[in-house]
């Protein structure tokens, strides 16, 4: 890691203190919770997930303007401003994966796909970094070893 990267990271951490105006991290956090609950929740549809991803994009823009008050000593608002970056990343990954997944053996509840699709029980959604974007692909679940399969088959 070079000194430039460290300086960038330090600047990213301290920027929220330097902004003369901006939004409280708690407001963004609250809206992210609402978005995930309402649009990316247990019961969801393709339409909801599309809107959810758009909302997360807006929240990322708001997060770029987050402002923190007070000192660096034990400052929960500052900690939240930093945590939000990871929360937004995870939220986007979850929403992306869910918008591809159909209904596999009661794992998800896509209300626009009421029937089980056994094909989705055979692969995992994987989200990986692709430059600055997220790449989503499917990876087949490894076959169950024969001895385990025999055990499961036993009544």
């Amino acid at each position: 890691m070079d000194a430039g990267q460290i300086a960038d990271a330090a600047r990213e951490m301290l920027d929220p203190f330097a902004r003369p105006a901006g939004e409280s991290p708690y407001a963004i956090h609250h809206d992210l919770q609402e978005t995930m609950q309402n649009l990316v929740g247990i019961f969801r549809s393709a339409e909801d997930l599309k809107r959810g991803l758009a909302e997360i994009d807006k929240l990322k823009e708001r997060h770029a303007r987050v402002r923190v008050e007070g000192s660096r000593l034990f400052n929960p608002g500052w900690h939240l401003a930093r945590d939000l970056k990871s929360m937004l990343t995870v939220s986007e990954a979850v929403a992306k994966a869910r918008s591809r997944g159909r209904r596999a053996a009661a794992l998800t509840s896509r209300i626009d796909y009421p029937k089980l699709d056994p094909a989705w029980g055979k692969s995992n959604n994987v989200v990986a970094r692709d430059g600055e974007a997220m790449k989503l692909f499917q990876r087949p679940i490894p076959e169950m070893p024969a001895d385990l399969a025999a055990l499961v088959a036993q009544k």
């Binding site: 991290p25 708690y26 407001a27 923190v68 034990f74 929960p76 500052w78």
Partner: peptide, 11 residues
């Protein structure tokens, strides 16, 4: 209080 009035309140 943290969320609406004092985001730097340490708890």
């Amino acid at each position: 209080i943290q969320a609406h009035q004092a985001p730097d309140l340490a708890v």
